[in-house]
Design a binder for these strands. Structure first.
Lengths: 244, 244
DNA sequence: GCTCATTTCAAACGAACGTTTGAATATTTC
DNA sequence: GAAATATTCAAACGTTCGTTTGAAATGAGC
């Protein structure tokens, strides 16, 4: 009986700093290897044998420490996703407090979403870049257990940011704003996924190692402009989808 | 020896209209079933036994008609993707001809991208909606054979539209424009994928069957505003990613 | 109506999958 | 240091996977 089944969902009690780099415990080694391999091959195509071999642990260790492959995947996600979303909300609250009772600008709200993601990507100690790509991929995964898990993980944060945007853009109808927030999250996750097929044909010069920070610095104004754009009226419809 | 191995890559020679609905040939039944099941479960999680059972054909039919599971997946994509991209380019050329030597508006270029996708989604005869979701998922799939296939399928269309945007937005640097086009394609595919986890928590009222047309009518102005937005200068950087 | 190529079919192939088991080893507790 | 608990390990479990096989059924050409 693994004792970890009880404390599995608690925040990581171990402190990874005061340990030599080579003697990390089995759970962490599995999480690190799984994070990279899930990112590289996806959930279904990554076998437990591949993970445990890369982690240098026994095959049965995954089922012992995490229960199942699905629970391992969720553990990989929560380890970084939950702290990131917590920091997003904390940052948004700090901005709101600093602004008094005035609504925030779109730029400020977006930066509250992006900065924690950026910090994660910058963090070379953790394999942050791998994780963001894995996360972007998970958004599009059809598996129900992934979808439900992400929904529960994001529910609180999305609600907070929707309220902030609603105050920043009071002239935009609530339903329209929901869609625009949806577009923002989509563009962000798609961009962070990073290895999409379309990127390959965009003929970016090889060697231009645009890091995530530079990309997000391009994406943020792009999205802010979209959020602020005037609401499309029915009379404008012909501009877009005129027949032939 | 299957003769189809030779003509496999040629455009579908059979005409699907002059055939009774129940007696479609084996290849089409496999393609239809595969399209829906790949969409629902993803590539890896969809077994050939599931596909052939749903299609009402023998298990070995897939390997006989398509060669392998991977080639079946590619066939599912090309069947609709190639005509759609051809129509996109044809539409763009028609717009450009109609505008004489004047550059097109962003709205016009975007509609040349969206309308063919919309027509596909509208087409109830073909399972167009399923296909667009499958396509959105394929963009984020890590499998190399999928990525390379999509790259080759999209290369020509992307180049055409990049040139059109470059003429429409001459003040935007070439590299910035590449990224913005990348954001546009990302938002489009992400939106069309449709079943992402974030959508579930956006608290859209159940029963509001927003069809793809309405969604794209919201997305298009959003993206056009982003495309036109002023280029972020270095002096604006503090607006976005100021520390804490 | 015979011939020959094409397509369908049931059955089986070897390999890889996630998971379980029970003994061996390491760690903690008193 | 003995007892109890926690972890590791090799081995095997039953299942499912994509693919192959060779014979049976079907259709076309002359």
């Amino acid at each position: 009986m693994p004792s970890s089944l009880i404390q599995k969902l608690s925040r990581t009690p171990e402190s990874p700093a005061d340990r030599p780099a080579e003697t990390v415990d089995t759970k962490s080694r599995i999480l690190d290897a799984a994070e990279e391999l899930f990112m590289e091959h996806g959930f279904e195509a990554t076998s437990l044998r591949l993970i445990t071999t890369a982690a240098g642990v026994n095959l049965a260790a995954v089922n012992y420490h995490f229960g199942s492959k699905e629970e391992l995947f969720q553990a990989v996600l929560t380890r970084r996703l939950d702290p990131m979303n917590q920091e997003r909300m904390r940052l948004l609250s700090a901005y709101e407090t600093g602004a008094g009772n005035h609504p925030l600008t779109c730029e400020k709200i977006i930066s509250a979403m992006f900065i924690p993601a950026l910090k994660l990507a910058r963090d070379h100690r953790t394999g942050g870049k791998n994780f963001l790509r894995l996360l972007g991929r998970a958004y599009a995964d059809p598996a129900p257990f992934i979808r439900e898990f992400l929904s529960s993980q994001y529910a609180e944060m999305i609600a907070r940011f929707r309220a902030a945007f609603a105050r920043a853009l009071p002239h935009i109808p609530r339903e329209e704003l929901s869609w625009r927030l949806h577009f923002v999250m989509g563009a962000l996750s798609y961009t962070l996924a990073g290895t999409d097929a379309l990127k390959m044909i965009a003929q970016f010069q090889p060697g231009d190692t645009e890091n995530d920070e530079k990309v997000l610095r391009r994406l943020a104004p792009f999205l802010a402009a979209g959020l602020r754009s005037p609401v499309d009226t029915a009379s404008d419809a012909h501009l877009w989808f005129a027949d032939t």
